[in-house]
């Protein structure tokens, strides 16, 4: 498992989800996306790292990780979609929203964001059938009461590029 010189996936993600960030830092978020696209096993490794951050007990770390996940879905293409579309990863999201697992200890903000993301992918990526299976299971369980208001036409439009720093 060769790593690119300099920053690794883990170091980009640590910076992008650092709880001491005052706001979402798109330089690091896009850096993580670019690193995924550079590495042979980028998608496989990155979803494992993301799942861990999304399950963070610190709300701000988890929220930033979900923003990173959303950006990766927009910028890292089918290889990344295929990894997210496996139950192995989807189960990690389900654990966060389900009261049988971590749901009781997780903030509503994090749970809502996960449900919005899952729903938006069922619309934007109908070929990823396991995402639909996971989402419909959450509905059957009553964890999702009704589809969230997500503008489907905007779900997979690439994220904005990092803003240049002021000189």
């Amino acid at each position: 498992m060769a790593e690119a010189e300099g920053e690794s996936l883990e170091s980009w993600l640590n910076k992008a989800t650092n709880p001491s960030n005052r706001q979402e830092d798109w330089e690091y978020i896009i850096g993580f996306c670019d690193q995924i696209n550079k590495e042979l096993e980028g998608p496989q490794i990155s979803v494992r790292l993301l799942a861990h951050k999304i399950q963070s007990p610190q709300e701000w770390e988890a929220v930033q990780a979900l923003t990173v996940l959303e950006a990766c879905m927009k910028n890292c293409g089918r290889r990344f979609h295929n990894e997210v579309g496996k139950f192995r990863f989807l189960n990690e999201l389900i654990k966060v929203v389900s009261p049988k697992y971590l749901g009781d200890r997780v903030s509503e903000k994090v749970k809502t964001k996960i449900i919005e993301l899952l729903y938006s992918w069922t619309v934007a990526l109908p070929e990823e059938s396991k995402i639909k299976d996971a989402y419909h299971m959450l509905k059957r369980q009553g964890i999702v009461q009704s589809d969230p208001p997500v503008p489907a036409d905007r779900t997979l439009i690439p994220s904005p590029p990092p803003r240049p720093k002021n000189p």
């Binding site: 139950f87 192995r88 299971m137």
Partner: peptide, 15 residues
């Protein structure tokens, strides 16, 4: 083969 066995092992979380 690897992909097939991965597919077989990929299950939705029991609820």
């Amino acid at each position: 083969l690897g992909e097939e066995s991965e597919e077989r092992d990929d299950h939705l979380l029991p609820m």
